[in-house]
């Protein structure tokens, strides 16, 4: 009896899993000699942001008659290594990789160098401050720039005086550290601007909401603006401010998510910053393309962020 039921439970789980794992892999057919084939290893195609990067990559490939083979590592470092090696075996002409873990890219870098094909890392930088080795490229954005852009946009709107709270992402994430650093770089230039508090909302809307409620209790009318490391937390702040009837506090986020764009349109959020993910994917494949053609592209390409305010939100 109990055995049967346990079997049934396992079956239910298994079927659920199978039903969930839709979507087949793209088989890379090695076409004629002329068409270039580029292998694209995504970190995780369930991550909305990564689908934007992949879309940019596909667009460039289509426009230039390049065949693109897309693999999805689902945030698994080992799987990504296997996928990249399989694509090298298939004979791709170049590789574009969004690293699952920037600290574990050594084997992939080595494999590409051994096969002497160009490798472009996109979106997440495995090299930190260092220059990539020969034949390896990086295309991405600098988080600190997003922070600076937020700070500059705030000073423009608020003036050179005011009190600011910073909602940080997960404290150990590079995005949280660098964006906050960029905020401070700008705000510290103005004697009239005070940072009242900087706390972590762990990227989450509900935690941004709770923290803002607590800041309103602690600082009341002193609080003039909130800089959030991402839009989700910024939208939580907006919610708290609305419940408290505070329309005077400026809220700025990063990411330009659809919800945040709505909020900027309706005026509840002052601004957000768009990371041009589509551009990263596009330029990533372009860099690989150029490298294959022997055009020696820049080894590191920075894609700029774009500030989104009420003035330009309709363009996105």
């Amino acid at each position: 009896m109990s055995k049967k039921i346990s079997l049934l439970l396992v079956l239910v789980l298994a079927i659920g899993l199978l039903a969930g794992c839709g979507g087949g892999d793209t088989g890379g057919d090695t076409a004629g000699e002329e068409t270039l084939t580029i292998g694209y290893a995504s970190s995780n195609m369930n991550d909305t942001g990564q689908t934007f990067v992949a879309d940019g990559a596909k667009t460039y490939a289509e426009e230039n008659g390049i065949e693109i083979v897309i693999q999805d590592a689902q945030e698994d470092v080992v799987r990504q290594q296997d996928q990249v090696k399989a694509m090298i075996e298939q004979g791709v002409d170049a590789l574009v990789v969004v690293p699952v873990d920037t600290a574990a890219m050594g084997p992939i870098t080595d494999a590409a160098q051994e096969a002497s094909i160009p490798l472009v890392y996109v979106n997440r930088n495995p090299f930190g401050e260092d220059q990539p080795p020969e034949g390896i490229y990086y295309v991405g954005s600098q988080e600190i720039v997003a922070g600076r852009m937020q700070g500059e946009a705030l000073v423009e709107m608020m003036g050179e005086e005011g009190n600011v709270g910073i909602l940080m992402g997960i404290l150990s994430n590079e995005g949280a550290i660098k964006r906050t650093e960029g905020n401070k770089e700008i705000l510290d230039q103005y004697a009239g601007i005070t940072i009242l508090a900087e706390e972590t909302g762990n990227w989450q809307r509900d935690q941004g909401l709770s923290l803002t409620e607590n800041w309103l209790t602690a600082y009341g009318d002193e609080l003039n603006a909130i800089l959030a490391n991402n839009d989700e937390m910024a939208l939580g702040a907006v919610q708290a401010l609305q419940s408290a009837g505070r329309e005077d506090v400026l809220v700025l986020g990063v990411d330009a998510t659809p919800d945040a764009q709505e909020a900027v349109k309706s005026g509840t959020m002052a601004a957000t910053v768009l990371q041009d993910l589509n551009g990263q994917g596009r330029i990533g494949v372009e860099t690989a393309h150029k490298a294959v053609m022997g055009e020696s592209p820049d080894q590191v390409t920075w894609i700029d962020f774009v500030p989104v305010t009420a003035d330009n939100v309709d363009e996105f």
Partner: peptide, 11 residues
């Protein structure tokens, strides 16, 4: 309360 639910919520 939040007016929105993120798949990463309540981690």
């Amino acid at each position: 309360r939040v007016g929105s639910v993120h798949p990463g919520a309540a981690t």
